[in-house]
Amino acid sequence: MLNLRLETFGMKILAAFRLCLLCLFIGYLGIGCKQSSKEKVFTHSSSLRIVATTGIVGDAVKNIVLNKAEVNVLMGPGVDPHLYKASQKDLELLSKADVIFYNGLHLEGKMAEVLEKLKKQKKIVAIAEAIPVNKLIKVGENENLYDPHVWMDVSLWKYAVIECARVLQSIDTSNAAFYKQNLDNYLQALDSLDAYIETEIAKIPSIPRVLITAHDAFSYFSRRYHIEVKSLQGISTVAEFGLRDITNLVDFIVARKIKAVFMESFIPERSIRAVIEGCKAKNHEVKLGGVLFTDALGAEGTPEGTYIGMLKANVKTITDGLR
């Protein structure tokens, strides 16, 4: 009797199981159908399809090809390599691309390894790796690891832009002259940007000319434009600073009478707030100078949405804060 009841119970469970399987498959079919109609929207254009990883790399490419090619950026506005998660859409872009540009120097982490392997099938270029090695800043002691934030130094970024143009000219020979022209124009703009940053930063009095941030992404900037950089911690996002780092920085700010500290958009504000409060308790008012752009561009359509605009915005924030 009991056995029988158990059996019917088991049957019911089995039926329930079948039912939910059915529901799921119907659901999946529904999603699938919807998708197949969407698939047709994808149009094929004859122009070059270019994919760039970060917004900054994408901006360099866009300035060379202008409207002659389709440029897709994987890490859009506000997306830095740490936040980035590859999606189905990105996979489609990557597999359909004719040429892929990325920064290199381990900025893209694991993705760079995949791109490295894909080089056998596609034209894939790490543009920052075109910069002469002796101009790069080493990290760590005895191995070939370099700080990837090269775009902070305009004169270095020019190498990357030139590399980018060189590759494009070799692939798309029909538009080579056009690309050459754009490159020259853009290099001129970069030169004047370089000079602009230099003169602007030089205007800050030299004693408090210190850029204080939470994360150390400004070593190239510091070297090129002669501004001291102090930060709570290095490049690594897993590393954490300790109590001593905070108190040391507070003492430093108080001693040098620095007027403002800055933060990067991808770091929680609180870390630099602790420094400000520490200074306040020691009777030195230091203000939050503003947010600096590091790995990601600002929103599209705004001045900060381009490389030049982003650096200019950084310079304005820094000079406004420190002057």
């Binding site: 890490m75 859009g76 506005p77 506000g78 997306v79 830095d80 740490h82 936040l83 980035y84 998660k85 999606s87 859409k89 996002t237 954490e240 600073f241 300790g242 109590l243 780092d245 905070i246 990067e264 958009s265 991808f266 770091i267 929680p268 609180r270 870390s271 707030r273 602790a274 409060e277 790995d295 990601a296 561009l297 600002g298 929103a299 599209e300 705004t302 900060e304 949405g305």
Partner: peptide, 27 residues
């Protein structure tokens, strides 16, 4: 997060770690 990534909103930087603090930076 990936959906937000495609919105093009520049304020999203560091969103995944935004509310995570550090014990040395207590206020």
């Amino acid at each position: 997060l990936t959906i937000i990534q495609h919105t093009g909103n520049a304020a999203q930087t560091g969103l995944d770690k935004f509310i995570f603090g550090n014990a040395a930076a207590l206020l």
